[in-house]
C-alpha cells in the first residue's frame, strides 16, 4: 500500500471516529465535512495551479441548482438528480472558468472569478431566472437527506476518496508538470506542453468534488438558495476555512473546517451570528498573518514530535 493510501485511510478512520463520538451533534460533524469538501476542492486548484479562484462556488451552485431544479420542477428521484447535477455542474463551471484561466492570470483572474459570482447571484435572483430558481425564496422543499451517522460516514468517505485521488494526481507526472506551471508557465511551454492543459485538469477535478458536494449539500440543507451556493459570503467562508487550516495541504482544509464549524458550535449559545462571523473572520485574518501555512503546520510539528522520523504531511 502506498503512503497516500495509508494516510487517507487513517484520515477516514479518524473522521468516522469523530462522527461516532459526536453522534449526538451529528449535524455539526456533517457540516464540517461539507466545508472540508468545499475547502479542499478549492485549495486543490488554487494552491497547486497558482490561480486564486474566487469563483469556486460556481461549481457548488451549478451542481446544487441543477440537482434542485431536476428534483423540484421535474420530480426526478433525488439520487438521479444528484448524479446528473454533479456532472452538469462540473461541466458548466469548467466550461466557464477553463477558457478564462487560459486567457487571464494573476489579479485579473482573481477579479473575473470574483465578479462572476456576484453576477451569477444577481442573475439567479433576477426576474428572468425566477421561474427556474424561485429567486430569494429558493427551491424548497427538496427531497431531503437526513442527519444520520451513516450519511456522515458516507460523505467522509467521499472526502477521503477525493483526497486520495488528489494526492495521487499531485504525485503523478501531471502533478509534477503542474509544479512547474504554477511557478512559470513559460518553462512548461518551452518544455513542449500547454501549461493550461494541466491546470485545466486540476480545475476539472477540483470542480467535480465541489459540484458533487454542492448537489448533496442543497438536499441536505433542504433548499437551494444563493446563501448556500453562489453567494460571496459563502465563498469567503470557504476561503477562510482553507486558510485557517493551511491551504498548501489537502489535510489543512479538513482541520480548518472542523476548527471553524466547532468554534461556531461553541460560540453559538454565547454570541449572535453577526459576532460569530466577526470572530471567525478575525481569526482567519490573524492566522493568515501569524501562520501563513495554517493550523496544519502547527499540527505537523506536533505529529513529528509524536512520530519521530516521519516526513511532513502532504
Amino acid at each position: 500500500m502506498s503512503r497516500d493510501s495509508v494516510r487517507w485511510a487513517a484520515t477516514f478512520v479518524a473522521l468516522t471516529l469523530a462522527a461516532v463520538l459526536f453522534r449526538a451533534d451529528i449535524s455539526f460533524v456533517i457540516s464540517a465535512t461539507f466545508f472540508a469538501i468545499f475547502a479542499m476542492s478549492w485549495s486543490f486548484f488554487t494552491s497547486y495551479s497558482g490561480y486564486l479562484n474566487l469563483g469556486h462556488v460556481i461549481f457548488i451552485g451549478m451542481g446544487g441548482y441543477t440537482s434542485a431544479i431536476l428534483n423540484y420542477h421535474l420530480d426526478w428521484p433525488m439520487p438521479v438528480s444528484i448524479v446528473i447535477g454533479s456532472i452538469v455542474g462540473t461541466l458548466l463551471g469548467w466550461l466557464y472558468l477553463n477558457p478564462i484561466h487560459k486567457r487571464v492570470s494573476g489579479l485579473s483572474f482573481e477579479m473575473v472569478s470574483f465578479l462572476s459570482i456576484i453576477a451569477l447571484t444577481n442573475l439567479v435572483l433576477s426576474g428572468y431566472a425566477r421561474p427556474l430558481t424561485n429567486g430569494d425564496l429558493g427551491l424548497s422543499p427538496l427531497d431531503g437527506i437526513f442527519s444520520t451517522l451513516g450519511f456522515a460516514i458516507g460523505i467522509a468517505a467521499l472526502l477521503c476518496l477525493f483526497g486520495y485521488g488528489y494526492s495521487r494526481f499531485l504525485s503523478s507526472n501531471s502533478g509534477k508538470i503542474v509544479d512547474f506551471a504554477r511557478e512559470s508557465q513559460d518553462i512548461v511551454r518551452t518544455a513542449g506542453a500547454d501549461p493550461h492543459r494541466y491546470t485545466g485538469r486540476l480545475l476539472l477535478l477540483s470542480g467535480l468534488l465541489a459540484s458533487t458536494g454542492g448537489a448533496l449539500y442543497v438536499h441536505y440543507s433542504g433548499a437551494a438558495v444563493v446563501s448556500n451556493t453562489f453567494e460571496l459570503a459563502f465563498m469567503i467562508r470557504i476561503v477562510v476555512i482553507a486558510i485557517i487550516g493551511g491551504r498548501f495541504s489537502l489535510y489543512g482544509s479538513i482541520v480548518g473546517a472542523y476548527f471553524v464549524v466547532f468554534a461556531g458550535f461553541l460560540l453559538k449559545p454565547v454570541v449572535s451570528s453577526h459576532i460569530e462571523f466577526l470572530i471567525i473572520y478575525g481569526l482567519g485574518f490573524a492566522i493568515y498573518f501569524l501562520w501563513p501555512k495554517g493550523l496544519i503546520s502547527i499540527l505537523e510539528v506536533a505529529i513529528r514530535r509524536v512520530v519521530p522520523g516521519r516526513k511532513s504531511v502532504q
Binding site: 509534477k176 508538470i177 512547474f180 518553462i187
Partner: peptide, 9 residues
C-alpha cells in the same frame, strides 16, 4: 526535475 520536465512532457 528541471531536466525531467521536458522528458516527461
Amino acid at each position: 526535475r528541471h531536466i525531467e520536465l521536458g522528458i516527461m512532457v
